[in-house]
Design a protein around this nucleic acid. Structure first.
Lengths: 347, 347
DNA sequence: TATTAATGTCGAAGCGCTTCGACGGACGGA
DNA sequence: TCCGTCCGTCGAAGCGCTTCGACATTAATA
């Protein structure tokens, strides 16, 4: 038996007002702080609130204030390549949203009609959308909505929406530059699965662009190999690479799921990563650390990106901040999977 | 430029009523179907609705009807052991919720106050909670709430709440029985990380219980090894096991993250899985299939469990179904990681 | 001391929807 | 032909909250 005056009869703001001997609006102002309330009144109200266990009714509040304190997050939930990465995005978004006193409504990627539903029905104040493709059909939809939206990823045409992502082009350059400086002359990218490339997922293309431009300006040879995320796909990619470009001494892997299999295959072929071959991973730090050896990596700060996305969307919600695109600078951390190449130190 | 009568001025039900030349309530009844409406009237209303692009306001609806059409899902978002599994639960819940015309509000495991918020604030109609521990502090909280809740997992005392989970005890028995039948006499469990065991996560304990009881009745020796999910943790578990019980020919692995590392370590030690050693994994099928060889496994039907959870919670929402506990029967699928043991076929 | 400006509180008008009771008309049975 | 039904529709009363304007007080200014 618990102390509860009446099961399922919940206190309303009027009950609180009555109990505190003030008007309804006063209670509301105590709660919102939008008008000054004297200390004694406030105290009485607050006492009444927790004596009654009062909780404002979210729907009523939304109706009256046109604010729901909920944001929508559209995430790809299909099992696939980058599940841990997705989880980190989600975690970042949810925890940061709480800092702004918002909750998160979860939409799945393929539920396109969900956008209309939550938007038109005023279920949410704002949206965050992950995994944006170059020519994403959802972009025009949310661009037409009244709620501000931020995209995680970079579409061809953002249509005035805010975007945030890792600067993959810079990451590509950074990885190649690092390999060049440490004496490598023949490098390769083992990248996303062919499907991802075909979808023109922009991050994959941006990484390749950066890699190629830096290879050119550093005078390196750079090869690119698509890579299915399965063990056999990874083996195949490694084998093809080593067959067509046997002089390769530096590999950049941008495929979390394939990474362990790539390393296994290299090991099977007697190639010692960190000595014969330098491998740089582009992935979250915890993934880099849970490989057979700690990987030199460019961090994909998924959780941070999620948080920044929320910051941006909240900024738009408050003031009249313009939309913007933020690309986070890549950071490379040396660990045990990379070493000097045939040309030795260059600095 | 788009066709939109007025940016941000959205149509209300009254606008629709006016446009269709009927009363507000008629429109409402067209939408809800709670009273009969003649075909011509219905048609006029529907035409008005999509001419105006009308969407009912979720908050207003919630206020008037005491139904939000949202359920809360509390999931562990910390990066950890079983990320892919969690994602599958989540996906199951979200997709099934949509079948019932509900959306999902995502709460993180550690945000205990979130329970109170969404519950007391009437933000949701029901709750689903994952990753329930034996003595979970959240259970009494949601048990006191007015919304129905289903737990994924089994607490010591469900306090009248519904539960759903894989029948891990049966899974433990099934795995051992299979090994016994295929001629193994010395088997072992490589299980959850020590932290998980210390939290008394019930699934780990239930699996062990089933395993031990079946080992006893089948006359096998069964050893249990906790296992950290890191590569080194997995290696250590394998090494310890092989040192203390060198006759082991059958291993049950119940730790998705450690699984690949366990297999690697066995390979490193020159032990051929599927020949020298039979390994049965307890994990989702797709995890079983993405190892170096296709694993014989007992499926952890995460997505199904999520769906069943939603089915159960919806049932309670509709009628006055009593609370229940559903344990899904384990299914073992033979693949390439298991073979006959020293005693040969027994059937 | 008279006048203005804060300061603190109240009352009432919605926000957009659901739902209950009422009501007019068509219909079948007596 | 009259009455009881059922069908389809309407009007109005909320659901619980926010917010605007008004109204006392009290404090600051001339």
């Amino acid at each position: 038996m618990r102390y509860q005056t009446e099961r399922n009869i919940v206190a309303t703001i009027d009950d609180v007002a009555k109990a505190a001997g003030v008007s309804t609006s006063t209670v509301s102002y105590v709660l919102s702080g939008k008008r000054p309330i004297s200390a004694p009144t406030r105290a009485r109200v607050e006492r009444a609130i927790d004596k009654l266990g009062y909780r404002p009714h979210a729907g009523a509040r939304a109706l009256a204030s046109a604010r729901t304190n909920v944001i929508a997050l559209m995430a790809p939930l299909r099992v696939g390549v980058n599940v841990p990465v997705i989880m980190q995005f989600v975690a970042g978004v949810v925890t940061r949203a709480r800092d702004f006193d918002h909750d998160v409504l979860l939409l799945t990627q393929d539920d396109v009609s969900g956008l209309d539903r939550v938007t038109g029905g005023s279920m949410v104040d704002a949206l965050v959308m992950m995994d944006i493709e170059a020519d994403d059909p959802r972009v025009p939809l949310v661009a037409a909505a009244k709620q501000p939206t931020v995209l995680i990823g970079l579409p061809q045409d953002p249509e005035g929406l805010s975007c945030v992502d890792l600067d993959f082009e810079a990451a590509g350059r950074l990885a190649v530059r690092h390999l060049a400086r440490t004496g490598h002359t023949d490098v390769a990218l083992i990248g996303s699965p062919p499907e991802v490339l075909q979808r023109h997922t922009s991050y994959a293309e941006r990484l390749m662009r950066g890699l190629r431009s830096q290879a050119t300006s550093s005078g390196l040879t750079a090869r690119v190999e698509a890579c299915d995320s399965s063990p056999s796909g990874a083996s195949a990619a490694v084998d093809t690479l080593l067959a067509t470009a046997p002089d390769t001494t530096g590999i950049i892997v941008h495929n979390e799921a394939a990474l362990p299999h790539v390393l296994s295959r290299l090991a099977e072929r007697g190639i010692v990563v960190g000595a014969d071959m330098s491998v740089i991973a582009v992935c979250p730090t915890d993934v880099a650390l849970s490989q057979r050896i700690p990987m030199t990596s460019i961090d994909l700060p998924a959780e941070d990106i999620g948080k920044v996305a929320v910051d941006m969307v909240m900024a738009r919600l408050e003031g009249d901040h313009p939309s913007e695109t933020r690309l986070l600078s890549p950071v490379l951390t040396e660990r045990e999977s990379s070493a000097y190449g045939p040309a030795g130190a260059l600095d």
